[in-house]
Write a protein that binds this DNA or RNA. Structure first.
Lengths: 199, 199
DNA sequence: CCTATTCGATACCGATCGGTTATAAATGTC
DNA sequence: GACATTTATAACCGATCGGTATCGAATAGG
């Protein structure tokens, strides 16, 4: 509570922190963690280098902050999609259509940042593996509620959620990997067809 | 034909090229392309640095050679799995079981190198995106023949192959992302359940 | 034994890496 | 207007990056 508007004395910042975080996120998203240099970050965000380190500590801590922030907004977005999807098998179809919009022409044209980051940093930079499994866990919860509202036996619901979760990560890979629109549509249509058998 | 045994004059090499390639592949596979330095490669493979550059040209060309080599062996392996799987829906179940062995205790515990590489280098290092789409294309051919032998309408076969392809990439992500054995089993069991509906 | 040839060991290169250290420029407070 | 405080500018740091050049060691052909 006492934190907001607490910045009064001293020279004002030349950048907006949220805007800068958006641009930092976009750059990491495009090029990956390792391939993005601090000089790149400074140039793209307009945040001076000493300020970057004063605020975030290091490149690694900055990336961790960005991943946390991204995780929160992405989970909010997926929760919203699930909420808008409605109940029943039709709700899943609606959800898939909404996801298609985001993947084809929305913000997720480079796949999921968390998937890319955990895949890139696994085995070389410890402390980032947790992001990947946390993402899969949070994503599964939302997919589960979506699938649950379509009915079926408990065991079926679990397995359908697991299938859709794994499929979802595969769609991320396809999206990032320069997959053209037709390839993405084939992947999504295939899921549509499978969902149809859940009626 | 005239190429084999052509290396005669000059000081003999202190390393076996195929063995070295295996170790270079393993290192790139673990740490990713960017996070692996040439010094790491030299240390892990035993190939002196000048020899690395004399034979492969550059780090980037070396990685391209390794990806081509990996692609060939991986496709051979998957073709073998498909061949051993046999016809019918049961063949797909067998295929999934064989895949599980490779993912859990085989050579693919870090996921697919091509998936990781194209995801890492996309957007930063041009010329590697093709590997990803080529991999998905070649993989889809093999999955298609597997699914085709289980029967069904042409349209169904196409969509089932697309589903299984996307699922497959998702399994790669799960495998690489420090997914424990139980999580991998859930992903595979979910596919088993879906395949059961194809009878 | 001499030469051509191929490779290994070592040192080296400029560039870039992530990160820091002045010092000056703005602000609010009094 | 003096002062404390926060930020921006710019130069700078050692380390490491990918890549190369030099030179000696090891082989085959003659």
């Amino acid at each position: 509570m006492s934190e907001s508007n607490a910045r009064q004395r001293g020279r004002p910042r030349s950048f907006d922190e949220e805007t800068a975080l958006d641009e930092l996120t976009a750059l990491f998203w495009q090029k990956g963690y390792t391939q993005t240099s601090v000089a790149d970050l400074v140039e793209a965000s307009g945040v001076p280098k000493p300020s970057l380190y004063r605020i975030f500590g290091s490149k690694e801590e900055l990336f961790a902050s960005i991943l946390r922030r991204y995780m929160a907004t992405r989970m909010d977005m997926i929760s919203t999609l699930v909420a808008h999807a409605g109940p029943g098998v039709d709700g899943i179809h609606t959800f898939l259509s909404l996801m298609r919009d985001d993947v084809v022409s929305g913000t997720s044209q480079n796949g999921c940042l968390l998937v890319a980051a955990s895949a890139e940093l696994h085995g070389s930079t410890p402390g980032f593996d947790d992001f990947g499994s946390a993402y899969r866990g949070a994503l599964r919860e939302r997919i589960y509620t979506l699938v649950e509202r379509a009915g079926g036996a408990d065991n079926d619901i679990d397995q359908r959620a697991d299938l859709m979760l794994t499929w979802f990560m595969g769609l991320d890979v396809t999206t990032r990997g320069a997959g053209d629109e037709a390839e993405i549509d084939r992947a999504i249509d295939a899921m549509h067809a499978t969902v149809d058998t859940w009626r």
